[in-house]
Design a binder for these strands. Structure first.
Lengths: 375, 375
DNA sequence: ACGGTCTGTCGAAACGCTTCGACTAAGCGC
DNA sequence: GCGCTTAGTCGAAGCGTTTCGACAGACCGT
């Protein structure tokens, strides 16, 4: 392997000159630069990552800290990871996958003190997450995926659950549905303070209230059986339901089969919309699921870019961004045929001032569902 | 951050002594060792990864080379990745995720010459894969996930497709099925020489022949619609079919819905077995899919361990290992009720000598399906 | 008492790069 | 023509480890 010395010798310049050609840290004349470039090409020179890292104190390695999660990653997380990896790679960085047990704070501290990571992405952030404090103390620039309860001074990217739920509810209300059941994660998951479950619960209540209809939430275990059980409960408590909004990818398949078991057709009798779902999974169902498609890989990319900003100039402002899931209408949602016969329900929607819409929301006064393509 | 110098000063020894305490490369007296340990603890010393890497010429970083694949990773690949990451982490190594376009050989060469990777795992290996040659030239120790056509001198781990198909077929034949259709990946995928599609195709033909029944393979696009289409073709060509074995996770859901559309019940009228499937996905279907569960995370772990062997002692023998998917019987397979009425079909199975079983196969002479738990 | 092997320790030279200070010319305003 | 800045280059000092050769002493058989 050729080193910088070899290049310098061949180009008849000093090592530092070669380095400056590479990094651009100081001006180098056109002529010299070309000589050096030629020498590098001839020797097939590649800078030695470790040496560069040691000297410059920057490893060009980013850490993706994922909790060791026995049940494994879902499609959304996977998309996130690959998105982050591509973005890092495109920027000339490497992404290391570090599984750290969520409560192995010592392990995390050790990892951080090895000075191998220029920065880190923290996945599956809890509302209260000690890992954040550990990494901050260790001086590791950080971007969260998800949010802690208190986000002051922290950069994060997360799904805009509020907007996502609103869009989903607007879609269903727009189709004439009034009795909509929200199937959330399990009761214990909610009790543990799992952010997405709590945020969507509240957003659902708010969105329904804005449309003047009553919210009903049912928790469900993350499984097909859990979904079926939740459906039974749902019919107990709201026999006239015409639509189900489900947070829970596994449960939604149980709901589908539960409906079929009751002799109900989707979407003619009951509409089903799945939250935070990947197209691949949505297409598995019959009919294919109308779903809020998670911005998995975009989240990954944005998180990496935000982190890189912090690295390039440490005065960079903190980056806090929410991305909504986008509605993709497939076969599992349709007009409500049954109870209420009233036109569409646009009026209720107007009662929500446009000011409540997130930054990039459509033109003022236009309800969200019209400003977003429903391909 | 404390350095080795600080530790050495505090412990009143030389830096090299500290180093020897850490690496064990030379004997150090009990007393000194404890002094040094104490100093390290007091200063909260952590070795600097880059410096160590530069001096020792070993980065303790492994690369996971995954092709940039727009349609993303499936559950099996994801499990593989997390398995590999945990194994690496447990061994004190880091795993970097390097998305490299499958035909960007220059990019790969560049990556390899940065000397950042001690070794690499190559995912989604094709039957002909130039990346292998590139990495070998660059002198990067390598373990393949999957196999090239010619595997001489190469270490790999892969799914034992042959055995997996055999076990699946044995399960169905044992249930009395005679007319079994194999739904493979798409015709173009097969034409491109995608290993798993070819290997399972051949294994299916062989397994069926051993049972004295005629094989029928239908290619299908990787989608629910593709599965439905394949099912139509299947019924055209074999109206009396009683079982479907499907390679293709997406297609299998289409097959299920296609069967329902024809008024056929699973498993009473037709049994369905899915190949290389994760439990999570299998549970989504109704009824839950009897499936060959892929050993995703075990593959990852084993691959990493094999790679580490090559690093520790470069004389290590090449490691070639196949892991079968394990049959998990759920609700989608059952006894064939319809055409043939003959007992079970054990006799045909015995014609395959046990010698063909891989290393850890059950006791000799016992058919595979009895030696494996069917929980 | 004498080489000879071990054990335990040290100092210094790498490892391959970045970066700082210094120096030389050249270009500029006045 | 004077000092001043600026462009372009060099040499050397790190960065924090590992590792090699050297060496002092202890322990051995003879």
């Amino acid at each position: 392997m050729a080193t910088m010395h070899d290049v310098a010798r061949l180009a008849r310049v000093s090592v530092s000159t070669v380095s400056y050609v590479l990094t651009g840290a100081r001006p180098i004349s056109q002529a010299t630069r070309e000589k050096v470039r030629a020498a590098m090409a001839e020797l097939d020179y590649q800078p030695h990552a470790m040496a560069r890292g040691l000297a410059s104190r920057r490893s060009r390695i980013l850490g993706l800290l994922l909790p060791i999660d026995e049940r494994g990653m879902g499609a959304t997380e996977t998309a996130f990871v690959t998105g982050a990896a591509s973005a890092a790679s495109a920027a000339g960085y490497h992404l290391v996958l570090s599984p750290v047990d969520a409560d192995d704070l010592d392990g995390l501290r050790r990892l951080a003190s090895q000075r191998m990571l220029d920065g880190a992405l923290l996945m599956e952030v809890q509302l209260e997450d000690d890992r954040v404090a550990v990494l901050r103390e260790a001086g590791v620039p950080l971007v969260l995926i998800g949010r802690t309860g208190d986000t002051t001074g922290l950069s994060y990217v997360d799904i805009d659950f509020d907007r996502t739920v609103r869009d989903a509810v607007a879609h269903l209300v727009g189709l004439g549905h009034r009795r909509i059941v929200y199937v959330n994660h399990s009761a214990t998951t909610i009790a543990e303070g799992y952010g997405p479950a709590l945020r969507t619960r509240d957003a659902f209540a708010a969105a329904m209230a804005e449309h003047g209809v009553e919210p009903l939430m049912i928790p469900a275990e993350d499984s097909a059986a859990g979904g079926r059980a939740a459906l039974d409960t749902a019919f107990d408590r709201a026999p006239d339901l015409t639509a189900v909004l489900a947070m829970n990818e596994s449960a939604v398949f149980g709901i589908l089969s539960g409906l079929a078991g009751r002799g109900l057709t989707v979407p003619d009798d009951v509409s089903v919309v799945s939250m935070v779902t990947s197209p691949q999974v949505a297409e598995l169902a019959t009919p294919a699921l109308t779903a809020m498609t998670s911005p998995g890989s975009a989240l990954g990319r944005i998180a990496v870019e935000a982190l890189l900003c912090h690295l390039e100039q440490d005065s960079a402002p903190i980056h806090q961004q929410l991305l909504p899931c986008t509605l993709e209408v497939r076969g599992s949602s349709g007009p409500s045929g049954r109870p209420t016969g009233d036109a569409a329900g646009d009026d209720e929607q107007e009662t929500q001032p446009a000011a409540a819409l997130p930054r990039d929301g459509g033109p003022r006064g236009v309800p969200a569902r019209y400003s977003r393509g429903e391909w």
